[in-house]
Design a protein around this nucleic acid. Structure first.
Length: 637
DNA sequence: TTCCCTTTGAAGTGG
DNA sequence: CCACTTCAAAGGGAA
């Protein structure tokens, strides 16, 4: 079984990341900046890698088995320093201010709402976080915590880890697990409630969409702060989302990425007790934190009996019963009974839980940002949302993306360790006859990845267009113009137009002027708006920039879009799907790359401006300069 | 009920 | 090695 290669931990995804960044870099206009940025990124990564490797190396089996004593200060400090540096680089010094008092672990800048739905973080929510954070943080004690801090800091520069760590040490001395209920079987005091949201979840976006500040989910009743009456998050920020707990804390900790957070009262990834073909590697030689994490996240069937994940109610997200999202609609047990007449193969298949692929960087990003986009626009259709997200993704700075790449890398790493024998092939039905999903009829050129046929304020990102990637009718005309679609498209079949003309779809659009054959210069275009102005400052807190409140400020500072971006189509405005949605989009500038936003400006504006007011302002703003922003076009050569 | 759509990225498959 | 395919999430919509 794939073993954790001690030093190879970092190579998980390293390549792809590099490649990815390289690709991004190709879009950059300034090579020097690229190299610089890449260097920075490399530094960040290397520091992470070092951290990771160090963790793995340093955490011997023995150490992992017994609750690992706090790592040596030297290492911790050293690592932290590097991480801090990296964090500084990432945040551009935006959050150099003193940490929030009383909230040692997480600093939630006022403008960080990107992590919250609607981009707003109510004072209440903030309070909640802080309280929860401090409360739980007191329990922070083990090496995992240190690692967590380091990692979190790296991942989320917004987190004031440093201050937190310092305070945490103090806190550790005088504070322990807040309540017996929070204490888990292990030596490590784990403060968490199975149904609570990880305090970090608001920051770690994945669950943000389900986290409603000020409005604690109904399903989170139990753990309430006696003083405030505010429900406590399930588990302390101290626990690294990635390297959570000790072996005894099985299933107690919500996934850092929101994995384990029961969202909307329902576990995202229901688990099953079905057998998993890969027994839990009890002797898995992973670093302490990782081993802890493993046990904490491991599904019941993969951990010792007494560790019942169900007791906690927190399943591992990656494990899904056939019931969920699988063809099989029955639980493992049920499936066993029902499938008696089926061949052993199928039985076996059903028997084992479906372990999902780890999310890649973009998926993580999507999870985080989807709610926001949905909130910003009235769009509900995921396809449209995803298009927006795709653009936003491209508009992200490398630093921003790096965070997600790193998260994804960690995800893969964890996934690999959790499911040593798992392979993407397990879920892959393409080549082996098992047809789970119909093979997509997509043709090579059909992947209109960066298609830009929409004029959507929400899509006001620089076009990542590819003239050579024609779009299907759906993409070209949008849902509201289905009459223009070819029949197959209307039936959600293969686009005839596209097939016939190999991009023939282009013609119709052009007729209405919506078509933009953009110069493949997209890379430049992409880079220019976002990165031209200021590679560094702009990217400081991109996520926060997309907040509605900031949109105005953001817009005002937005440099004029490159001519190429300017669209002719706006005039015609044949609303495509997205375009239509754009109409509903409250904030046309939402998708603007954070590039131009001044770090200092963001926080104040975001806080000061009620989200509601933003609507009007946005509307007026839209009148002022919405078009260029919203337009993604291709210039006809 | 199931699949499609749509995005990017990771990983598997097959030539 | 390269091209292609599948699958991750998401949820509305269509078949």
């Amino acid at each position: 079984m794939p073993q954790l290669n001690g030093g190879g931990g970092d190579d998980l995804g390293a390549n792809d990341e590099l490649i990815s960044f390289k690709d991004e870099g190709e879009q950059e206009e300034k090579i020097s900046e690229n190299s610089s940025a890449e260097r920075d990124l490399a530094d960040v990564k290397s520091s992470l890698v070092n951290e990771s490797e160090t963790n793995q190396n340093s955490s011997s089996d023995s150490e992992a088995e017994r609750r690992p004593p706090p790592r040596s200060e030297s290492f911790r400090d050293k690592s932290r320093e590097s991480l801090e540096e990296a964090a500084k680089r990432q945040d551009g010094g935006l959050f150099k201010g003193p940490p929030y008092p009383g909230y040692p672990f997480i600093m939630i800048p006022d403008l960080t709402s990107p992590y919250l739905p609607n981009g707003s973080l109510s004072p209440t929510a903030r309070t909640l976080h802080i309280q929860s954070g401090s409360t739980h943080y007191s329990a922070y004690k083990t090496i995992e915590h240190q690692i967590a801090i380091q990692y979190l800091q790296m991942k989320w520069p917004l987190l004031d880890v440093q201050a937190g760590s310092l305070q945490s040490r103090q806190a550790l001395k005088d504070a322990r697990s807040p309540s017996p209920a929070h204490i888990v079987s292990n030596k490590v005091p784990v403060v968490q409630h199975p149904h609570h949201v990880h305090p970090l979840t608001p920051l770690i976006t994945y669950s943000n969409e389900h986290f409603t500040p000020g409005n604690p989910p109904p399903h989170l009743p139990a753990d309430v702060d006696p003083k405030t009456g505010i429900p406590r998050p399930p588990h302390p920020p101290d626990i690294s989302p990635y390297y959570p707990l000790s072996p005894g804390t099985v299933g107690q900790i919500p996934h850092p990425l929101g994995w384990l957070v029961p969202q909307q009262g329902q576990p995202v990834y229901p688990i099953t007790t079905g057998g998993f073909r890969h027994p839990y590697p009890t002797a898995l030689t992973v670093n302490a934190s990782m081993s802890s994490f493993l046990s904490s996240r491991f599904p019941p069937h993969m951990v010792p009996p007494h560790h019942t994940l169900h007791t906690t109610g927190i399943p591992h997200p990656a494990i899904v019963t056939p019931t969920v999202k699988q063809e099989s609609s029955q639980s493992d047990v049920a499936s066993l009974h029902s499938s008696k007449h089926q061949d052993s193969k199928k039985e076996e298949e059903k028997k084992k839980p479906h372990i999902k692929k780890p999310l890649n960087a973009f998926m993580l990003y999507m999870k985080e940002m989807r709610a926001k986009v949905v909130a910003e626009c009235t769009l509900k259709e995921s396809a449209a949302i995803n298009q927006i997200l795709g653009r936003r993704w491209h508009a992200l700075s490398r630093e921003e993306q790096a965070k997600y790449y790193e998260l994804a890398r960690k995800e893969r790493q964890l996934h690999m360790q959790l499911y040593p024998g798992w392979s993407a092939r397990d879920n892959y039905v393409g080549g082996y006859g098992k047809k789970k999903k119909r093979k997509r009829d997509k043709q090579p050129g059909e992947t209109n990845e960066h298609s830009e046929c929409f004029l959507n304020p929400c899509l006001s990102l620089p076009p990542i267009t590819d003239a050579n990637t024609p779009k299907k009718c759906r993409a070209l005309f949008g849902l509201d113009r289905q009459t223009l679609w070819c029949k197959p498209c209307r039936r959600k079949k293969k686009c005839v137009r596209y097939i016939q003309g190999e991009g023939s779809c282009l013609s119709p659009p052009s007729s209405d002027g919506s078509l933009l054959d953009s110069p493949p210069s997209s890379p430049n275009m992409l880079g220019s708006p976002t990165r031209d102005s200021k590679p560094q400052t702009e990217q400081t807190q991109p996520l926060s920039l997309t907040l509605k409140p900031d949109s105005l400020a953001h817009l005002t500072m937005m440099p004029p879009p490159p001519p190429s971006l300017l669209l002719a189509e706006s005039a015609h405005s044949k609303p495509s799907t997205l375009a239509v949605s754009a109409a509903h989009c409250q904030n046309g500038a939402l998708d603007l790359p954070p590039s131009t936003l001044q770090p200092s400006a963001a926080p104040s504006s975001s806080l000061a401006q009620p989200s509601t007011s933003s609507l009007h302002s946005q509307g007026s703003l839209a009148g002022t300069q919405p078009q260029p922003l919203s337009l993604v076009t291709k210039s006809l050569e």
